[in-house]
Design a protein around this nucleic acid. Structure first.
Lengths: 211, 211, 211, 211
DNA sequence: CATGAATGAGTTTTCATTCAT
DNA sequence: TATGAATGAAAACTCATTCAT
């Protein structure tokens, strides 16, 4: 008489299923609009399971933020510091990062767009997650901008600024990518590179930079 | 039997007050978390007034989006195309835009961060508002990158990419500004300019740009 | 600057306008669904006027009930007791009553259908109004069923029963009339008369009436 | 933290309880005046349950209409077409119908009085329900007015008119019954029968029926 | 472990009614 | 007199969360 019960799975697996589903749903409709029931449904389980495993909607969202921040950080770190030396240059690093953002819309949307806009209960957690991402991208910038000899040519502060620009640009440009299916993350980075290398110095001639 | 009534003000004034309050509250807690009552309170009136004048929470939010999009567009347009000639160069234009974002946190937060993350009911309106902003910044980029002779050196597509980068960067960097009270929008643009002009070509030597 | 004000009309006229509008609106959507604003609009005046003249929505509805009950009673009375003798027979009286119901949908709907279904605040008023109508129809039945010599052939109690049947039937059949535009109140009464006179005794042969 | 919960009952049972309570409450105060909370209270459960099971106040009302229409139809049908032949005569059928109306005030009030007066959202459903009832009573009239040999003596149209009269009369007379506790549905039908059989032909002599 | 049943708390929305001009 | 501006009170509906089985 009881409705069919889900197969018993080890806790770890179940949790991953839930967070996967939650990221998917949250990214589509946002934290408030997503109901726990909807998420449970998307994970193929019943509502109380979410509470048993994750405790509350808030904790579930937090778990999503953590996991997705981990994924960004891991991805970038793995590319920039592969187990063995040859560190990537700046543009190669950016390419990896852009590709992640473009290929993982749900992750990025939850992490960068939704998490940010939630107020109090998450402020702290979100800041921490963001800082981890920023730190990682900053590290990538630092690594990518050393002179052949190893000297740094951008200060820590400037490196962070560049990291933030990269993050904001990735976010903003990933929308552009969606609207331009004829382009790819790679072709986009190429464009940006060209603009930075060639364009900047040239189109700037008529506009005196601050002395 | 009715409680003491507010001072009577003409509709136009009250509507502006409401939208002001709504932008403030929405920017702080987001669309869903903000209750109409809270907004009414912040505007110094009672809830039903919001419904009498604006119709619904949804329409109120839409009104905020429209007005704030207008403000960004107006600000940028006024700076770039002053009634009289001397158009601004790229960096001067960016400076105006950055300043707006930094000086109007609430507007920008609602427009760029919150509006985006709201799903269906707003998708269309938001897209329209965003496109207006993008178009304006793109125009600024185009205007700011002409050669002295007037020839364009960036294609339309690239101009829009630069505009999107500027927008994403402004958004991202305005957070950075908050965390660095010793800096200002102007000093920040100076840094970015320096990085773009001087840095790019130099720190790139070790990393071959795509051929 | 002030919106155009309605022409000043004597109180009596204004009140009639309001009640006319109210009957119209109430009959269409019912007491609760009708908003005072809607009624004021239908009467071509502003909301506060309704309160100044009638005091409250409740009193406005009560006024409608009274007036419409008066109209039914007057109509029937005028037909049955014309200033001078020749009283009408039963069927002629019914014909008058049916015609009123059919020709005054709004009045009847408010009086018989809506007023009835409103609970407490109106119970008493409604009962009184209904009783006046019932009394009048009963009087008509009594008048219409005297023998040529003047003796009564239906008891008071039976006369009231017949009156109630007539009222319920008029209500029920006026719906039927709406669905059968090829018929008229008169043709309907003819049918009913035929059924009563000819049919009843005949088709009843196979079904023994209670001994 | 949640208050004490009601005994757990299967959905089917709860739904019936809700509709029972709703019919009771709606019949007493009408659709608009009845609050969902009040109905939930009358059913011994909390408001959200009504929404979980029935979806909306509108759907709840519709469910009431359907169920009560079913009950009238079933009652009449069962009496008129018992599993085995001897169909009832007209008066016996009416007696069954009158008894239902008198014994099920709430059902009848909701079905005939309240449902009618509700405008748009219900118009269609109500019409359908009413038509089912009318059709059943009409069938009863047809069955009850056949000659011993089986020939029909009333046309379809006239049968429906008689059905409508019966319905309107039942509605109207059931009020009368309430005011006359010394009478019963049966005694009332007896009176009506007498009036129809004996009275009609007699008291009519002085009033010429239409030629 | 898993889930159907149940609810407290809160939100948007509407409307009769009043007041200031 | 007449009306635009304003609000208290209440109703429909939703949802995170819990408990009994």
């Amino acid at each position: 008489m009881a409705g069919k019960q889900q197969q018993r799975l080890p806790r770890e697996v179940r949790e991953r299923q839930m967070i996967d589903a939650a990221v998917r749903v949250f990214s589509q409709v946002g934290y408030h609009t997503a109901s726990v029931e909807e998420i449970a449904g998307a994970a193929g389980i019943s509502k109380p399971m979410v509470y048993i495993y994750l405790g509350s909607k808030e904790r579930l969202f937090t778990a999503c933020i953590h996991r997705e921040a981990d994924r960004v950080v891991e991805t970038v770190r793995a590319a920039v510091h592969p187990d063995e030396p040859p560190e990537l240059g700046l543009w190669s690093g950016l390419r990896v990062f852009f590709r992640f953002v473009a290929d993982n819309r749900d992750s990025w949307t939850v992490l960068y767009q939704h998490a940010r806009t939630q107020g109090e209960p998450f402020a702290k957690e979100v800041r921490a997650a963001r800082n981890r991402v920023i730190a990682e991208i900053t590290a990538m910038v630092v690594a990518g901008t050393r002179m052949p000899g190893g000297e740094r040519i951008v200060s820590e502060r400037d490196a962070e600024i560049l990291a933030r620009i990269a993050i904001g640009a990735a976010d903003s440009l990933s929308d552009w990518l969606l609207e331009h299916p004829d382009e790819s993350p790679d072709s986009l980075v190429d464009r940006v590179t060209d603009l930075a290398l060639v364009g900047v110095e040239r189109y700037n001639t008529g506009d005196l930079p601050p002395s």
